[in-house]
Design a protein around this nucleic acid. Structure first.
Lengths: 338, 338
DNA sequence: TTCGATAATGTTAGCGCTTACATTGACGGG
DNA sequence: CCCGTCAATGTAAGCGCTAACATTATCGAA
């Protein structure tokens, strides 16, 4: 039990002094106990317990130049998809005694750059980024830092280092093709702001590619940009329906948007999928629960985080990473809305 | 521009040497530039820019015993409510040049304790906990650490230090009273596992208190425990309806559960709120969007995080915190489901 | 016995920064 | 012309740990 009145936390050298050994012996007890004689070890362990000694990870990090910290930069925490990926990351890292530092870039590449600088100053041992839209300076910083970097949630053309993701473009194309195959025409699009957001950009591109593949040409009056929230999706759908009453289907770049669009259709008495078909993206919780259930794209969110964490741990342990660009794929989930 | 082949990052003393000054002068340029002669300052700043020097925050932390890190321990990241609070926290902290370290306890107090130990080892300057269920050892550790601690998302009877939350019990009682006032009887309950989860426990207690206040006695056959997911909510509702076909209303301790329950009613053709009323908790995105829209309790999630961050910053800056126990309240949102 | 091997433990010099104080020179009032 | 004052800068110690080597027994083989 820690003494009541002792103001400072015990240091390694305090433990050593109390146990009558040198600091190195304490270090050995902590790290490879077999190297220490049983009697000595017992004595040291007793002191450690009684003083409640805990190593100072800041000092350890400085001395060993291994901070034991990995940072993740996400666009926005309130995006539940990302939260799952972060959970996967921590789960994988916690087993390696590594802690996660978190930053939110707010979908801004310059803000991401600032966070990268800050985290590098903290000597993080690896960095996880969401997406592939970075400033040139960010990329240079990351390359120069010589630490493992994982880009997640998409497949970049020029990876900085490692990648764990899936093709947003191919996924959007697949879903749009499905709408085309079901005979819907015209097909609209509601997506997120593509600025500094490669996922949004690639999804839009996939949608347009599918249209062109079917001999149709993309039409800006069929497209809307909005935020990743249910009410925003509803508003965007309202705008789109007012502008194009002939709309027969809409591909939404996120289920939250799709759900809002669906609810807007219900408010207007437009039957889904008979009058309007709706396709989503992400397969979030409610996607399968709303009526009609959403046809959407499912992506392995938790696994993306977990695999990223595993890769990082492998690299930090000096183990080779067999597949530094890991395409985890996606799945077209056909339900009732399209 | 950093030299191409230089293996190490520049240190303070490198900058000092290149600028022909002592390290202290560089430190002054970094921290209070007015104390340095303009010419000297310009010279040092030029070297800093050209070398791309960045202070090593690990070393700074060790030397100054201010790590610049605050940690938050949450039960589960995938809970979108918590994610909002964490976003509020980072937003408040980032302005103070403080970074957030994140840990997930998985609704387990012992796991929380382990994280607390780890974070204290990292010399975090403050700690944010979700909820008020902690092991005795955790509380002792925290008290002994003499750092700011915020307990969030509830109002504890014996706060460790500061609190930013609302009364889960009072909120649940309020919603249940609303159901009673509308004449529903019997009123069921579907909640989360109360083990190591004070919020779940308090909500259940509030529900029972409301019943007793109306002269009814709580009945275990009217209650179910389940997970915080829509499908789980649906399953729990199914169990409850099978066991108590006479059920007229249900209070769900989370909107995700309530949404699942609602969908289950729809699948069974039970009219909501005529045949069955449903009350939720949290006012998540979909609560206002499902049909019928959910009557629920709204809590200031983002603000809880932000205020916590502000309090922590104030305390770290030595400023007094006027109200260390901050009750942010809740709001009964009456919609269509009850 | 003598010596090298092995086990057990110790010594020393930092990691890159900050803290607390010391020093230097220039200036102006007495 | 001396000295106190202030501005500008420097010195030295050390934060708590680790890395790399150094030092002691202790013991069986030659």
């Amino acid at each position: 039990m820690p003494e009541a009145g002792d103001s400072r936390r015990p240091r390694l050298r305090d433990v050593a002094a109390l146990a009558g050994v040198s600091t190195m012996t304490v270090v050995r007890v902590l790290r490879d106990p077999e190297k220490v004689a049983a009697a000595t070890r017992a004595r040291v362990e007793a002191v450690i317990r009684s003083t409640g000694y805990t190593p100072d990870l800041l000092a350890r990090g400085l001395a060993s130049s291994r901070s034991g910290i990995v940072a993740a930069i996400v666009p926005l925490l309130t995006n539940s998809l990302i939260a799952e990926t972060v959970q996967g990351l921590t789960d994988a890292l916690v087993e390696g005694e590594i802690h996660l530092m978190l930053g939110a870039s707010g979908f801004s590449a310059p803000q991401e750059e600032e966070l990268i600088r800050a985290f590098l100053s903290r000597r993080v041992e690896a960095l996880h980024l969401t997406g592939t839209s970075h400033t040139a300076a960010s990329v240079e910083l990351l390359r120069g830092a010589r630490i493992p970097v994982v880009e997640g949630a998409n497949l970049p053309e020029n990876p900085i280092d490692m990648v764990v993701g899936y093709s947003n473009g191919a996924a959007a194309e697949t879903l749009t093709r499905h709408l085309i195959a079901r005979g819907y025409d015209p097909i609209g699009y509601i997506g997120a702001d593509p600025h500094d957001n490669d996922r949004a950009r690639d999804r839009r591109a996939g949608y347009e590619r599918a249209l062109r593949g079917a001999g149709r040409s993309p039409d800006a009056t069929l497209c809307e940009e909005t935020q990743l929230e249910i009410p925003a999706g509803g508003r965007a759908m309202a705008v789109l329906l007012d502008r194009r009453p002939d709309l027969r289907a809409v591909f939404c770049s996120a289920d939250a948007i799709a759900a809002g669009a669906l609810f807007e259709c219900q408010r207007r008495g437009l039957a889904v999928p008979e009058r309007i078909a709706i396709g989503g993206f992400d397969d979030i919780d409610i996607a399968g629960q709303v009526v009609p259930a959403l046809t959407t794209i499912r992506v392995p969110r938790y696994r993306m985080g977990f695999e990223s964490g595993q890769m990082i741990r492998a690299r930090l342990a000096g183990r080779p990473v067999e597949r530094p660009v890991l395409d985890l794929g996606f799945e077209l989930v056909i339900r009732d809305s399209a």
